[in-house]
Design a binder for these strands. Structure first.
Length: 456
DNA sequence: AGCACA
């Protein structure tokens, strides 16, 4: 021991719950390791086919004593540990845990998690997905869902393994198929695809609603920033995301609310109105075919307000949020995706369901006649106005302030309108409102203000 | 037969 090298060759190694196995057949698979080791305890991790010859492996026990039991057993056993007839040499590893470089998506399984990047939802139909993957064998089932992406790029497939072994498909629809069950009911509205116009009870085609509004901005004399849009559209509810872009030489914006109801109220209230007095920046609103925008969290052209900037902020968001708000928000969406059902393999971080879809008034959205949410005072409401006025001085010449002098809107955004709480907590959704006084308006302005400003 | 992975 005068030389300080080769310490790992000593059999005086300190015990570890990780064991190092040598002389394995290179074909050895994880199941064989588990077979060999599990009589001694619970195996929490393995790594096989290690080393240049792929004939080594590591096994991690839940408990140190289990590893000790295995080492001591084979140290005195007349029957050596064997895999496929080869004697396996077992020692304590010099590490105390197996670092698994492989994420959950790397664990092989029969279900693939496919992420299609750089396309809008619905651009790649389920039939196309089926066709592509059928090239490699019979596709049993497909379930699709939308997930906010970090970035937009060209159309690429990212494929990993899902943690699921089976998909629970409830309907055949444009979002999900079960090719093994011909008797599965078809969701008649969903199978058509959400690009199809819906037909109302009167037989007339009605505009397909969405929680995302497309705003075309006409006569854009003044800059319309994300902040200005946020201020304007927050008057009707929580604005989740905004994206501004150029199209056909004009400026358009997408404004995402948590639900269709809020978007509808905003659309009706703002359609044809101007952000600035004097006919500047006139808004034309329609429903987008998007239900969830893929936007940069913070840029000059986009904002994602759903990304919590602190844990505290996340806690301030409404409790009791439905797991998958988009399901009931979109009348065309099939009702078979209760949130995390397909969220295996790290497809959806836990925050993506509850944290991402703050819907502050689920009772109203569910169409129930009464509000359960407690009416309260809104200390932020006067600030909502002042934030509007701030834009007036900051971004427009001559003190023309956003939405301050344009008919119905100005009456609620005016100091008088805001300082008088007109909140009527038991008003039915869709009930007739006093002209220019929407209960959504005042309450949601203040709430949104509090939320967005406390986050900065 | 003798310690992975970035």
């Amino acid at each position: 021991m005068s030389t300080s090298g080769q310490p790992q060759f000593r059999y005086t190694q300190t015990p570890s719950k990780v064991l190092h196995l040598r002389n394995l057949p290179w074909e050895c698979i994880e199941e064989e390791l588990i077979e060999l080791c599990k009589p001694f305890g619970k195996i929490v991790n393995t790594k096989c086919n290690v080393g240049a010859n792929r004939n080594q492996a590591f096994v991690e026990f839940a408990d140190l004593n289990q590893a000790i039991n295995m080492v001591t057993y084979y140290a005195s056993s007349s029957e050596p540990a064997q895999v496929r007839g080869k004697t396996v040499y077992i020692q304590y590893s010099n590490r105390h845990e197996i670092v698994n470089n492989k994420g959950p998506g790397d664990v092989p399984g029969n279900v693939l998690l496919v992420t299609i990047e750089g396309v809008e939802a619905g651009d790649v139909s389920i039939d196309v997905i089926h066709l592509v993957f059928s090239a490699f064998g019979f596709v049993h089932k497909i379930a699709t869902f939308e997930k906010a992406a970090e970035h937009v790029g060209s159309c690429h497939l990212r494929i990993s393994y899902s943690a699921h072994t089976d998909l629970n498909i409830k309907f055949q629809s444009h979002r999900s198929r079960d090719y093994t069950n011909p008797y599965l009911p078809v969701n008649p509205t969903a199978i058509e695809g959400f690009a199809q116009p819906a037909v109302g009870p009167d037989g007339k085609k009605k505009e397909l609603e969405s929680n995302v509004l497309l705003a075309s901005i006409e006569n854009m004399q003044y800059a319309v920033t994300v902040d200005v849009l946020h201020t304007v559209f927050s008057a009707f509810g929580t604005v989740q995301k905004i994206a501004i872009f150029e199209k056909n030489g004009g400026t358009q914006a997408l404004i995402q609310y948590p639900d269709v109801t809020t978007a509808a109220v905003a659309k009706d209230a703002l359609e044809g109105h101007c952000i600035y007095d004097g006919g500047y920046c006139k808004l034309h609103l329609s429903y987008s075919r998007h239900t969830d925008l893929n936007v940069k969290a913070y840029s000059d052209k986009s904002r994602d307000y759903t990304i919590p900037e602190s844990g505290l902020l996340a806690m301030q968001q409404a409790p009791g949020v439905p797991a998958a708000a988009t399901v009931w928000q979109n009348p065309q969406a099939s009702p078979m995706f209760p949130g995390s059902e397909f969220a295996g393999g790290g497809a959806m971080p836990a925050q993506s369901s509850a944290g991402r879809v703050p819907s502050w008034d689920p009772n109203m959205q569910a169409g129930r006649p009464t509000f359960v949410s407690v009416p309260r005072t809104f200390p932020g409401q006067t600030y909502a106005l002042s934030s509007v006025q701030a834009y007036a001085s900051a971004s427009t010449p001559g003190g023309s302030s956003p939405l301050v002098q344009s008919g119905q809107i100005s009456s609620t955004m005016s100091p008088l309108g805001v300082s008088q709480p007109v909140h009527q907590p038991n008003m039915r959704p869709g009930g007739s409102l006093p002209p220019g006084q929407s209960p959504y308006y005042v309450t949601k302005v203040s709430r949104t203000w509090v939320r967005s400003h406390t986050s900065q």
